[in-house]
Design a protein around this nucleic acid. Sequence first.
RNA 1: GCCGGCGUAGCUCAGUGGUAGAGCAGCUGAUUCGUAAUCAGCAGGUCGUGGGUUCAACUCCCUCCGCCGGCUCCA
Length: 643
Amino acid sequence: MPKIIFPDNTEAVVSEGTTFLDAIKGHNKELLKNAVAVNVNGEIKDLKGIITGASDSIRLLPVTLDSKEGAEVCRHGAAHVMAEAVKSLYPNVKIAIGPAIEDGFYYDFDTEKPFTPEDLEKIEAKMSEIIKGDFPFIRETISKKEALDLFGNMGEVYKTELISELADGEITVYRQSGFTDLCRGPHIPSTRFIKAFKLTTSAGAYWRGSEKNRMLQRIYGVAFASKDELKAYLFRVEEAKRRDHRKLGRELDLFSTNEDIGSGLVLWHPNGSAVRMIIEEFWKKEHAKNGYDIVFTPHVAQLNLWKTSGHWDFYRENLYSPMEVEGQEYIVKPMNCPFHIQIYKSRLRSYRELPIRYAELGTVYRYERSGVLHGLLRVRGFTQDDAHIFMRPDQLETEITGVLNFTLYILKSFGFNDFDIYLSTRPEKYVGSLDNWEKAEAALRGALTNLNLRFSVDPGEGVFYGPKIDIKIKDVIGRAWQCSTLQVDFNLPERFDVTYRDDQGAEARPIMLHRALMGSLERFFGCLVEHYAGAFPFWLAPKQAVILTVTDRNNEYAAKVLRQLKAAGIRAALDDRNEKLGYKIREAELKKIPYMLVIGDKEQAEEKIAPRSKDKGNMEPVTVDEFIKRVEKLTRPGGGEIL
RNA sequence: GCCGGCGUAGCUCAGUGGUAGAGCAGCUGAUUCGUAAUCAGCAGGUCGUGGGUUCAACUCCCUCCGCCGGCUCCA
């Protein structure tokens, strides 16, 4: 007879055929509060699942709605309920797949008429009805043939396609109310366990994610264990909107795009440019310190160069079309690497010179399909903080470690401290020798391990020319953006026949490393804006301080203070308009300027200024020199905290 | 590129067949004011583009462009 071990480590023996539910009920009813499933030796199962004798010792742990697994089970249930609602409202619709996802769920439907927002409201109302009905989810096991018949008779062609690919044997289906779906489970006991949900949006989605297949209509929803959690989710959505760099970009006059110029092409306004220049200066200084040589290369080059590099063959759909000049075809550059290679090749290289590190803030243009463009985060023209390192094979791990350290230092300087790191390994189609691949992967892995960095492996997700490490930056509300990348390349050195003379005087092939720390300045800047919600730390702020006069009696003194601040290198401005102080403060707050410096008759008489920090409010009046001294340490990169 | 939504003044948004409206911003004037919006006046739009239907189109239909949310893509 199976032995049950409960969470409190007490044990009980039950007879075969007992359900998990009854077993727990017999032990401690309290455990069933909010329970939607059960963890059986680490596997999530239905509460009403049957205990078999196969395993003689069973560790049972109720899975509650407020746990991660419980929420997932609940969200999956919501997907089924949505499918039922859709089928009952629109009987001709075919159902495809409907999994749980982060915060919610979706379901794909094949329908002649896409869903309108009004349809979503109707579906939502129907779902509420079903949930109130408290219909149990009933699991059934049938044979493959029965399943094919069952869904075949319903005309559910997507389901039969899925079933026909399953191995012969038992197939599980779940029924609730009048709805039956192919499903592995587990499921919530009944529909009322869906406590709070909301349909969010509908969108097209290809069947099985392939452009070659029919486009289905996907409805997205969110579901939570309580109304409060749903409210918290909606608040997070609002918060994300508040931080949206596209909105802040306009409000803070940082950048714009323009229909007459073209999609995905960015205009950096003076405020955005000011931040960019600070980033670039910092970048240049740090690269000089870290052994890089900075180079400049053209924006266009002959088509032949890109044939040699392979871009013309492998990357053509992302290239801007060639232009003809004096019978020669040129294209605008999608990458900087061939240029750096040509600089390397401009003379013979010795093993003694390696590694050679060429860095460039190189602006590249790539044709991205219109549907993928997104603010500054996905554009068609962008500036990479690019570098290519040419090295001997024995230098691989040292160089990778160096680049990783450098990357983390740069990212941390900008206030990013949370990363997701991915190591992508050899894909099915690859160039280069297996031996080299293994060495490179080992070097990447070794560097990550030596630096004690947590990373996940994306098997087979490497680029065809070499393995890579990607670092995604997490912003303050937990969203991840890929910026940094570090890629080993066995391909280009071959294609361009890049060589050096080794210590025996023989010709040898260097290994090349592509790397970008911030990725592109556009994307990085977009992330920065969101990260700080537009309130840049002092060292990055386009305007660091604004002087506010109380009356125009103070204007002359204020102008003198402005000169002092500017002489000290502070990016200051003067607001001496004939407006009330409250009005000026409000404007400065909205512009997110770190310091407001109030000057009224009192300050003028004492030759002082009254600082007001954007974050901390009013401060005691101080002299200009005192203020300058106080903010000095904030002007250094990474010096973010306002006094 | 595909699916859906949207496009009205610099910004945020009203206006559903009878030739455009508000708030904020802007400009002018008054006000000289102490920590998140002083008052008044003025000005501002060929309603994204091109075509069609109609006596009449911001409104209905089609094309294209752009934006938004997804899908796909992102060597």
